[in-house]
Computed example of a mutant assay.
Amino acid sequence: MTFGFAPSSATSFTAPANSANRLARMLEPAEWAAAGVPLLRNPREVVSALHTRHHPKPSTAVVAVLDHEERLAASASFSRHSAPADGWELRNALLAHLRRVIPHDLRRRTPVRTAVLLYCREGDERWTEEDGAWMWGLRDACTLHGLRCGAYITLTSDGWQVLGEGRGGRRPSSTSTPGHPADAMAEADALPLRTASGAADALRRTAAR
């Protein structure tokens, strides 16, 4: 099997059924790192803020948009089905939630905002095919929404890990209590944040401003 950055499927909205195409719609950590994904200045603060706001449990994805100063501008969370992960379907779910919480930046020549993805799952920090599908989906969703593609972060019982970078920590984890003082992000100068949560099947939103 060969993995790589295929041409963007931005113009394709018909999901092929065969598994070969599904497996092609994923990225490995080395390819992800080679793509020039911008590093977070303080990933622990970003992870802690999203954990506190969304209380993610296994199979929950949290997509967030950061402004040029790496402040949270918007975020949304949703759960996914247990079926084999397909980057095309994950891309569409991410895009749907981005559209609900923040306007697109397609008119800009260069993206100024960055989307990052936190995925809470079972297992350890090692890369899985499901992670590869999320990476592919995040990259494509960012292209379609005019955003810069940012970090992909996993949250497990062992802690959090920025895949493709090797940075991580024990807290927060999928079993830690949201809002722990050690996890909280200082938000004194943060922008008003738009937040949404929902289920992948219905893509329903519960907004809080």
Rank of each mutant, 00 (worst) to 15 (best):
69 E>Y: 10
138 L>G: 01
3 F>V: 08
152 Y>H: 12
200 A>M: 06
39 L>C: 08
184 A>F: 09
89 E>S: 14
198 G>S: 08
79 S>I: 05
34 A>S: 15
73 A>E: 08
191 L>F: 06
46 V>W: 05
30 A>E: 11
63 V>D: 03
26 M>G: 15
100 R>N: 09
38 P>M: 01
120 C>Q: 04
150 G>M: 07
136 W>E: 00
196 A>L: 11
59 S>H: 08
97 H>M: 13
201 D>V: 12
110 T>C: 08
75 S>Y: 03
29 P>F: 01
173 S>W: 02
141 A>C: 01
54 H>T: 01
27 L>T: 09
89 E>K: 12
53 R>P: 04
29 P>Y: 02
53 R>A: 12
91 R>P: 00
116 V>Y: 01
51 H>R: 01
86 D>K: 00
67 D>K: 07
80 R>C: 11
28 E>F: 09
48 S>P: 05
61 A>P: 02
87 G>A: 04
4 G>M: 00
63 V>Q: 04
209 R>E: 14
194 R>T: 15
116 V>H: 00
51 H>A: 05
180 H>E: 15
207 A>G: 10
86 D>V: 05
129 E>A: 14
194 R>K: 12
68 H>P: 05
191 L>T: 08
154 T>V: 15
196 A>F: 04
31 E>G: 14
59 S>K: 07
197 S>D: 08
113 R>N: 13
37 V>E: 01
71 R>K: 08
66 L>Y: 01
47 V>G: 02
125 E>V: 09
208 A>M: 09
145 H>N: 11
154 T>W: 03
77 S>W: 02
74 A>C: 05
124 D>F: 10
33 A>L: 07
148 R>M: 11
64 A>Y: 05
86 D>Y: 03
170 R>W: 09
143 T>E: 13
52 T>G: 09
179 G>E: 07
116 V>E: 03
36 G>T: 08
168 G>Q: 05
2 T>G: 10
40 L>V: 01
24 A>D: 10
33 A>R: 11
30 A>W: 02
71 R>S: 03
100 R>Y: 06
43 P>T: 07
151 A>K: 00
30 A>I: 06
144 L>C: 15
28 E>D: 13
12 S>P: 02
161 Q>K: 11
114 T>S: 04
16 P>M: 06
88 W>D: 08
63 V>H: 06
198 G>Y: 06
14 T>S: 11
56 P>M: 02
96 A>G: 10
187 E>N: 12
45 E>T: 12
